[in-house]
Design a protein around this nucleic acid. Sequence first.
RNA 1: GCUCCUAUCGUCUAGAGGCCUAGGACGGAGCCCUCUCAAGGCUUAAACCCCGGUUCGAAUCCGGGUAGGAGCGCCA
Length: 472
Amino acid sequence: MTVVTRFAPSPTGYLHIGGARTALFSYLYAKRHGGKFLLRIEDTDRERSTQEAVDAIFEGMAWLNLKSDFAEIYQTQRFDRYREVVQQMLAAGTAYHCYASKEELDAMRAEQMARKEKPRYDGRWRPEPGKTLPPVPAGVQPVVRFRNPGEGQVVIRDLIKGEIVFDNKELDDLIIARADGVPTYNFCVVVDDWDMGITHVIRGDDHVNNTPRQINILKALGATPPAYAHVSMILGADGAKLSKRHGALSVTEYRAMGFMPEALLNYLVRLGWSHGDQELFTREEMIAKFDFDHVSASPARFDMEKAWWVNHQYLKITDPAIIAPEFDWHLRRIGVDPANGPDLKAVIEQQRERCRSLVEMAEKSKFFYAELDGYDDKDAAKHLTPDGAAVLDELATALEALPEWTAAALHTAVNGYAESKELGLGKVAQPIRVAVVGMAISPPIDQTLFLLGRQRTLARLKAAVSYVRNKS
RNA sequence: GCUCCUAUCGUCUAGAGGCCUAGGACGGAGCCCUCUCAAGGCUUAAACCCCGGUUCGAAUCCGGGUAGGAGCGCCA
């Protein structure tokens, strides 16, 4: 049997981080077993589904490089099939019409709550042998309800949570088709998973309570239920549900914050899943090692600090050529033209050790591509002094005379100058930094000057000298 | 309220009855290295929710508490 998994988001918002993790788990499980992974858009709620949300989901999945093995499926394009199955169930007696109005049902629930009972449909329109149904009200379009078994139990053998048992008594007759004929979620899911040969349903654990009903519908249809794996939710840093305040929302925003897609995925896979003490995985390793035996059943908190650490690890070990396009995106985002300076790969090579995010890298690398917009006040006060200016002035002359503008030549020149003046390297390198970078933070000074280039370096050294002189 | 789920350092987790004086990672603290910022190296503090039971032996199995969470829609 070929494993087929699916990710089935509803397009009512962006692709959030929890959804991304379920998508990842589904993807990994399918790949691990040489199976297929598909993306299905659950857009039967026409009120709330939007095209923007569909686009956002595709964008997120594409950025994460979680590719579907089939064309995307939209539930709204399968209405004929759902209607057909509804008719089939109506004919078989496993579903029935219910004419109760929304108001009536609301009143019923309110009463039940008042009596401290679990609110549930009381079966007033459910046909039973020997039971007389109420008279059909005129002009009312009925909904269709599934006739859930009244007795027995449903056992879910969940791959993550183990055996979960529900009494059929707890389950009421859910609506499978609305009054306007549009089928509902619990029904569409069942028909789709069945039709598409889904073998493993991997989804958020907010769906556990739906599962027994879905299994019952499947059984009524004569289908074999798939295996289930209910993944626990991701909590915010304070243990509460993830929200905007925790900075954990759409995957697109993680991109904007400066994450590499593979790094985000790596962080996410470790949130709930483990493979001994291993923290870092390539995509191939994730595929080779992922399994549900080691997925935790308890909810996990999103820890930004650790996520940044993982991102940093990726920045340090990934081929600069792979980082470059993403880095490029960030530079443009802050209004920097990457063409107007050194090769991105070389800059990445120098900056990767000192940046946890690409946003940070872009900001710290801006000076390579754009003119300085002033000096950091504190750094300037400390290093752009008359003494510093003297150093810069002499150094400018020395560097101007360099036959070759290489990191090695610059290293020798700067170090040689410091030695000849019996100055500590810090006394020389720091003023240069501030002059050339605008602040006292940068990669090693020889590399910095090399990448910045002769023209810009000399111009900035001189500008710093005049800055100091004009000030005094 | 009812049903279901969960419970190891601050956080993510290892742990499938003896290998646990509970391991790793992030974060924290300290030291070393150092042209800045980093990176790196070393050291260190820090946890089995509680109570019973099973067993020669329990973080691990069972029961009960407690605490969190999810669901109870003509939402998905």
